[in-house]
């Protein structure tokens, strides 16, 4: 797993979004086991309390569950997973709209830009 932290955002929130992306992208499939807190904290180079806080919040959101004896697992509840994907996609779309409106595009222009990208992704290469 890749752990890159940005400035100015609480680290536990960044851990939560990294883990959500992993779950959504299949890196952590439904039912798979999560490493122990300390191992994950070491891998990410963060404080174990911070990692614990992130995992606890993911548990509260129903994305992870703990089995007393065997550890922590990704939920297999389809409904919860669907909700998470939906909220992730809303977040990305919101960020897209916010960035593009900063450079002066209005709602229709943004939708048009998305549509044209979707139709001709090839011409949108860097450059």
């Amino acid at each position: 797993m890749k752990w890159d932290f940005k400035n100015g955002i609480p680290i536990y929130l960044q851990i939560i979004s990294i883990l959500k992306m992993q779950i959504a992208g299949g890196g952590l499939p439904p039912g798979s086991q999560i490493q122990p807190v300390r191992d994950l904290a070491m891998e990410a180079g963060v404080n174990p309390n911070t990692m614990q806080r992130a995992l606890t919040q993911l548990e509260q959101e129903g994305l992870l569950y703990t089995q007393r004896t065997s550890g922590r697992f990704v939920t297999e509840d389809e409904e919860v997973l669907r909700e998470m994907r939906k909220s992730l996609s809303e977040q990305y779309v919101r960020e897209l709209f916010e960035s593009l409106s900063k450079i002066g595009m209005d709602k229709n222009e943004i939708i048009e830009a998305v549509r044209s990208y979707q139709e001709e992704p090839a011409v949108k290469k860097e450059g």
Binding site: N7, G8, I9, P10, I11, Y12, T50
Partner: peptide
């Protein structure tokens, strides 16, 4: 608390 500080000042602790 470092996470509270990051939220409050919108910067890393280092910045």
């Amino acid at each position: 608390n470092t996470d509270d500080l990051r939220t409050r000042v919108n910067m890393s602790v280092d910045e």
